[in-house]
Design a protein around this nucleic acid. Sequence first.
DNA 1: GTCTATAATTTGATAGAC
DNA 2: GTCTATCAAATTATAGAC
Lengths: 179, 179
Amino acid sequence: MSSDTVDRILKSAESQARTGGYNAFSFREIAKDIGIKSSSIHYHFPTKADLATELTKRYTEKFTQHLEMIDVGGKDLISKLSDYADLFYEALRTDQKMCLCGLFAAEADALPDEVKAQTQKFFKTNISWLEDLLTKHDVPSPESEAMKLLANMEGAMLLAKAFESEKHFKGAIDLSKFE
Amino acid sequence: MSSDTVDRILKSAESQARTGGYNAFSFREIAKDIGIKSSSIHYHFPTKADLATELTKRYTEKFTQHLEMIDVGGKDLISKLSDYADLFYEALRTDQKMCLCGLFAAEADALPDEVKAQTQKFFKTNISWLEDLLTKHDVPSPESEAMKLLANMEGAMLLAKAFESEKHFKGAIDLSKFE
DNA sequence: GTCTATAATTTGATAGAC
DNA sequence: GTCTATCAAATTATAGAC
């Protein structure tokens, strides 16, 4: 499933969901946005949960692809972590929007089970990648450090939104421990 | 304005808002929850923006009161920061819910202006308090360090929600720099 | 695959009786 | 201050024509 219409549906849904969360995107708004009828969206995604699940899945896949472009095996840990932080920063700078999964995580208890599970995968993928990176660079307690780093990324995005300035993201990122 | 009904309205609204954000609480749900009619809520809060503004204001005031109970002037910085982190942890552990202002910040662009402004105040209050604490303990770059600490708090809450376990909050908090 | 038409529910909000 | 009654709009979703 990857027709042009599906792509346009998901692109519009992502924009709305990353702005106001799960309850901030609707079939009718997406339909109006891309110039079709809401019933046509139901043909591609029977329920809203189906749409959100696929949206979260693709968001994670795309992020994972970018992750894999950072060579974990290289020699300079701090530059790898800086590249990692830049993935979040670019998502913020380009779209002026919060991380989809960060927002979904914050409202996890209000999400359909499938969407919640898919959101969790985003976090697990990030933790695994960070753990791998830190392990390869002989950092002690890699799992614990991975959690702290991911919390730093999502928290920095949240502060950038709170203060309405993506510059605050950079100011809230703390990689000094690994320099 | 602080009648019993108003308090009950705000308590119910807080519970719903901290679960799913601004679009996850409604006049009717609150009314049903506390056993009155939705039109009665409009008597106390003409619009939803009014309700959310007062909710955010009180949330910030209550948090600020707890902040002020931590003696900034004491001798042990790390224990003060630990007490600070515990404010967020208790909010998470007691209610199993995200920080109201953390969630509102994530969906800031979808909020009425007054609510967004009030949410910002929560963050500014926290930054000011942390700056003051760090300054008193002669920590270099107190403003920058305050941003990193607050990002760590909100990010840790977000991870706890993502992994559905408040224990993950403690694992994501990083105060090692100040030990 | 997309449309029209429509259903059932929920939403924020108002008017007016008590 | 709380109620009944009501409204206009928006929501997710379905049936059936083209």
